[in-house]
């Protein structure tokens, strides 16, 4: 009776989105969900967990162990145990790509570069400073300024024929610069591609990259063109896991299984 077997839950309470992954004993993802984190992390995590359990066809009572991660990891009552998103993203990515990797995670509020060796051991990590430059928040702010739905950015950037390069990483300064470009008559797709390039430049200055590069995070999940641009920038193929937004939650679920 496979459906009666215990499962493991990873709950990634991010600044922008909450993600849940349900794993079975064979480490297969049998349930997953993403919801807005909003202001009530507890409610968001419960809603997200219910959705993921429904998808898996399991109940909360079947969770053998759960682990939280992310910005709100200590604000939810579902689990007594938590790990940082750095460790969980690393574990989740290594699950897909068991080799020495550099992980670029672009989240709603922060960027990370995490380096692992061939055994999955973390060698180093870097997070962005107290600044939203190059994060999902940067693109969100720009979509508001340009009055373009966030989900349209990827398609627009792909249409660009003559990218407009922006000089500043700063969200506030970039907004001013974008307005200036509009006044100059630049095309919106060219400006949006410029915004994507700004994200890439900001990430690239954070740390050096090893041979195998993995990209994850909500921004990557919803803007696949960003990966193509990054590939062009570094001159090699980038690895992207099946669910790039869920690697943190997956890593948390793997830790939960290990701790059980």
């Amino acid at each position: 009776m496979k459906d009666s077997q215990p499962v493991f839950a990873g709950i990634d309470v991010g600044a922008s989105r909450t993600k849940v992954v349900i794993l079975d004993r064979e480490q297969q993802i049998i349930g997953r969900a993403v919801v807005k984190s909003g202001t009530d992390f507890e409610a968001a995590s419960r809603q997200c967990l219910t959705l993921a359990l429904d998808m898996a066809g399991r109940t909360a009572g079947q969770i053998a162990k759960a682990m939280t991660t992310g910005y709100g990891r200590k604000n939810v009552a579902i689990s007594q145990e938590s790990k940082t998103e750095i460790s969980c993203h690393a574990r989740g990515c290594y699950y897909y790509f068991p080799r020495p990797i550099s992980i670029i995670d672009i989240g709603g509020q922060d960027n990370k570069i995490i380096k692992l060796d061939e055994s999955g051991k973390r060698l180093s990590f870097k997070m962005n400073r107290k600044c939203a430059a190059g994060t999902g928040a940067f693109l969100e702010e720009m979509s508001v300024r340009l009055d373009i739905p966030l989900e349209d950015l990827d398609g627009l950037a792909r249409q660009s024929l003559n990218m407009v390069e922006l000089g500043s990483f700063c969200t506030v300064f970039s907004a001013t610069e974008v307005l200036e470009k509009i006044r100059q008559g630049k095309k919106v797709p060219d400006i949006v591609k410029g915004l994507f390039f700004s994200v890439i430049k900001r990430v690239m200055e954070m740390d050096s990259l090893s041979e195998h590069v993995v990209m994850t995070g909500g921004v990557v999940a919803h803007n696949a063109f960003l990966v193509l641009m990054m590939e062009e920038m570094i001159g090699r193929r980038i690895l992207v896991p099946e669910y790039p937004q869920l690697t943190g939650a997956l890593g948390a679920a793997l830790y939960a299984m290990e701790k059980n």
């Binding site: 998103e85 460790s87 973390r122």
Partner: peptide
């Protein structure tokens, strides 16, 4: 950010 960085370093 300080907290997350420190906790991740300890991990």
């Amino acid at each position: 950010q300080t907290k997350t960085n420190v906790e991740a370093f300890i991990e």
